[in-house]
Computed example of a mutant assay.
Amino acid sequence: MSAGQNETSKPRLLVLIGPTAIGKTRMSLEIAKAWNAEIISGDSMQVYKGMDIGTAKIREEEREGIPHHLIDICEPDYPFSVAEFQERCGELIRDITARGKLPFIVGGTGLYVESVAYGYEFPDSGSDEAYREEQLQYAAEYGAEALHEKLRAVDPESAQRLHPNDQRRVIRALEVHHLTGMTLSAQLAGQKKTSPYELCIIGLSMERQALYDRINKRVDAMIEEGLVEEVRRLLGSGVSGDCVAMQGLGYKEIALFLKQQLPLEDAVELLKRDTRRFAKRQLSWFRRMHDIVWVESSENFHKNLLLIHAIIAGKFRVDLEYPTNQSF
């Protein structure tokens, strides 16, 4: 199948979203092979080099020849932003389309994906370094939760989306309100919901307890694969535990163990709890998005895949023909 070109003025864009651990990676490979697609990671953490196990990054040998983009593009101490993601994605989409292939975003960072799908505009509201420093000092004195509560008081929607440990983004949300008098969530809600693309967004969902079971098993597998050693190596190489990347799931919890602030067993349980809460926040964000066709992910992988193929074919108005190397 090929869906890289169309007769309309808009380029096609395929998107697969869903909460962490639901099975996007395996599904995306089969979709990409069938639809002549190149995958763009829509995960805000997979951009960082050396952060592989904790981000569930697909290994080179597992990609089955499918090009993957926006993986391993910056160092862990680089403050990668949604605006930069959007810019890089736009360039990739134009390039992939020009080569007659289908751009295919796969990931779970809702704001990142939505910013590309609908061409969000990010106004430069400026900065106030003194204000930022004041908030950093407040967090140092009273703790990350107290800073997060400050955000909850003025912008509860952003507070729900952002983890208390994500201090850079929490402070930025506070700063936007401080500078403009308008909340970040209100700015996002005011964005246009028309897409510059011929858009097909597919969302994977799953019964909550089944998803939580998958999350718990994934965390156990990450520990077995060497997550503790990965975090130890990052910290030992000079990566600050306070940088944005190290506030990601898996890294901040294991860092607590390595700093002897928690026993390993407690750190693992904390990671499982934080990941379940993150998945809940992801689903809350996705449920507010437009244009998603939801697929209930079951144990019958090939049934799910057939359904997704049919959805894509219907959305892009192409004949549903499967290549001979595909078995169902």
Rank of each mutant, 00 (worst) to 15 (best):
T97C: 06
K259T: 00
Q5P: 02
P11H: 00
D155C: 10
A186S: 15
G110R: 00
C243V: 13
K272L: 04
I31Y: 05
N36W: 09
L199G: 04
K315A: 14
E230H: 06
C200D: 02
K57M: 09
V176R: 12
N6A: 11
E265S: 15
L305C: 12
D242S: 14
K217A: 15
L16S: 01
S41L: 02
D72E: 11
R161E: 08
A146T: 13
R26V: 13
D128H: 07
A144F: 08
M27D: 04
H177R: 14
P263E: 10
I308M: 15
K315F: 09
D155P: 04
L151D: 07
M27Q: 11
E230L: 04
G181D: 09
P103L: 02
G314Q: 11
L188F: 08
M222D: 03
E75F: 06
R161S: 03
R132L: 08
H69C: 01
L179M: 05
R208N: 05
A245S: 14
G100Q: 10
L14F: 01
N6G: 15
I39S: 02
G190S: 09
S185T: 11
H290D: 14
Y48M: 06
L262C: 02
A255H: 07
T97W: 06
G248V: 09
G100P: 13
D43V: 02
S44M: 07
Q209N: 08
K150N: 15
D242C: 03
G119I: 01
P11Q: 06
L204M: 09
Q86N: 12
I312S: 06
K303C: 12
R288K: 14
M246C: 02
E269T: 03
A34H: 13
E60N: 13
D319W: 08
R63P: 04
A56Y: 07
S298Y: 06
I22S: 01
D52P: 01
Y120T: 06
K193S: 07
E121S: 14
A267H: 06
L227Y: 00
F316M: 03
S205Q: 14
H69V: 03
T55F: 05
H177E: 07
Y78E: 08
G107E: 04
G23C: 08
M246Y: 03
F122M: 11
P11R: 03
I58N: 05
G314N: 15
W285I: 07
A210H: 12
G42V: 05
L306G: 15
G238R: 03
A144R: 13
L258W: 00
A310H: 15
V244K: 07
